[in-house]
Design a protein around this nucleic acid. Structure first.
Lengths: 345, 345
DNA sequence: CCTTTTGGGTTAAACGTTTAATTAAACTAT
DNA sequence: ATAGTTTAATTAAACGTTTAACCCAAAAGG
């Protein structure tokens, strides 16, 4: 059966197309009460659903929001190993749905660039999670739609940022270990890239050490990828070769899980022999055994905040562009069972 | 700066709009070699990117694929607690991207129904995960686009199904326990609904019991939600009140995690006192401590398969509609450390 | 009673494409 | 040289909306 269009409704109600469009758009001062109800009846009767596509063409909108998330190395899959992203997406979807937007999920490929997606799809806005090449940010500017960056430290007035104070987070984690009497503290982490979130956490780690008058030992930082496997091998390594290390800060919960596994495989116990503190508080953290002590970032709130800021910006399009604003979601230590208090002994 | 359209390209290349469109669509027999290159040059020069929206209007396509996933009870969030879905989505996105499609992610709300989304967005196809109300399936038929259902047992020739043999899975899990010498076997599971996946697994559980000449004891099935918390409370309950139970089949890994926690909290050990087998093999299963023995379903393959089938159907639109086909992804037990062999003793 | 305003409606252009129909020129074959 | 065919281009309608511009009748103001 043919698709019903505004034309059918108009005919059915015995009015012009324009009249229908006016009531669809709530411009009710243009139409008499009588016809309004007549039109509504026809809409119901015919089960008419307007085409967002057609509307988009003339209004130059799409009611679509792009969500760009990191991909695996081979550019094949979206990086969902870390549930972190899913939780955030869930939050984003929830808020944009309220305003009739949908999210389109995409990785950015070699061939199709971000700009391609944005302009060909006529995105109304985009949320970009993670860190990418300079080129991508350039493209974003050209795309000329509201964009909010999550967990990125590019400082450009074009973009709104939401994230956490990673330096503080690193500091808090390390300090928590120190406060519990640890003095030789390892750091296991992904690649420390200039202006990346892990660099900030690393900086926080160093600050806490310094503040406590502890010596920063580069040998104690195990830098590779933010992954379970890196955690696991580092755990084994630490347990076997660094008996003096009593506490380790893993810059992501996933890493912490691997770390604990590695430590146990090497015959030591957590937290009896080695304490571990993670970062993120993904939902798995409290389910893990032993339940993971970690720096909690409110993932859901983060996604929600990003989405709200984006919607705001889309709304007042040419209004006050929220220039280079950066919102920080608060952090908090959640103590569970992987950090031992050396002081109490 | 204004958006560049096909018109600009045409002007720049000194040809008609139609000519440009023809080369864009590879109908190169309609255009001379000379002009083809001239047009390509203009495209490059102006950085022209075609509007999918506009094209969609005339071709009646959107190059958009809807992915419907379950929501939390309150209909607020997408159900991402279970990483299961994220993994599948990642797979789906990967394959549809190859063909230039994007996925739009949505929960189905009270207000906006599935049909609304589908027709207003002019979806080219949809993948629906999980089980919904009759009404939704009715709407789907009316929408009249290719649809593939993942993990659903609605039998209707309109839909292509991909899933696993849940009955067999339940059987395999239970049999594995039996083969390891267990005789009193608990089942902890979500609500057993007619024609739902958990019902099938439950049926498999009973079949394995029966086949082994074991008595089916309704008291041994702990039916509630597929969630960590349900697992946890059931674990405590089993450990405390059912000393005769030595093995438990949890119908989802998430549940198994909770189960193990509950058992340990009640002072018993896994697998020494009670063995546990899960279902799914989400990536967390091998990271868990102890690593979880489970029935592995190839989640990624499942998503991939669904996506491929959908694309196929979209392609040969009016061609052979893959009528009511059901594809089963193979299952396999992966033995890790939560099932104890009682026989060897 | 004439002019202006207002309410309620319609017409038609525009959004950026695709594609059927048409035309014009250049070849082919006789 | 003529008719027929092929090639390469253009024109214009169509897709489903929105919205500025226009129109007319009735009400309001003077």
């Amino acid at each position: 059966m043919r698709k019903i269009t505004i034309k059918d409704v108009a005919r059915n109600a015995g009015v012009s197309i324009a009249a229908v469009s006016y009531v669809l758009n709530g411009k009710e001062n243009k139409v008499s009460q009588d016809t309004i109800v007549r039109i509504h009846e026809s809409i119901k009767e015919l089960n008419y659903i307007p085409s967002i596509t057609a509307r988009g063409l003339v209004k130059n909108t799409s009611e679509l929001i792009g969500v760009i998330i990191p991909q695996t190395e081979d550019h094949k899959q979206l990086v969902f190993e870390n549930p972190f992203y899913s939780e955030m997406i869930s939050a984003i979807e929830a808020v944009v749905r309220e305003d009739g937007y949908h999210i389109i999920l995409a990785g950015v490929d070699k061939g199709k660039t971000y700009l391609d997606i944005s302009t060909s799809r006529n995105l109304d806005g985009a949320i970009i999670m993670g860190i990418y090449s300079e080129q991508l940010y350039e493209e974003c500017k050209q795309a000329n739609i509201p964009i909010v960056l999550i967990d990125s430290y590019v400082h450009d007035n074009e973009f709104t940022n939401v994230g956490i104070d990673d330096e503080l987070g690193g500091y808090m984690a390390t300090k928590h270990l120190i406060d519990n009497g640890h003095r030789n503290i390892g750091l296991v982490t992904g690649m420390i890239r200039k202006d990346g979130v892990v660099e900030k956490r690393f900086l926080g780690y160093k600050r806490a050490l310094q503040e406590a008058g502890l010596f920063y030992n580069p040998d104690y930082v195990f830098e590779n990828s933010v992954s379970y496997v890196h955690g696991r091998s580092s755990g084994a390594l630490i347990a076997e070769k660094y008996p003096e290390i009593t506490g380790v800060f893993a810059t992501a919960d996933m890493v912490a899980f691997g770390l604990i596994r590695g430590i146990k495989e090497a015959g030591k116990e957590v937290p009896e022999d080695i304490s571990v503190i993670g970062f993120d508080d993904i939902s798995m953290a409290h389910m893990f055994l032993p339940p993971l002590t970690t720096v909690k970032q409110q993932i859901f709130l983060k996604g929600e905040t990003a989405a709200k800021l984006l919607i705001d910006q889309i709304r007042k399009k040419r209004g006050a562009k929220a220039h280079g604003k950066r919102t920080h979601i608060p952090l908090e230590i959640v103590e569970r069972e992987t950090v031992r208090n050396l002081r109490g002994d």
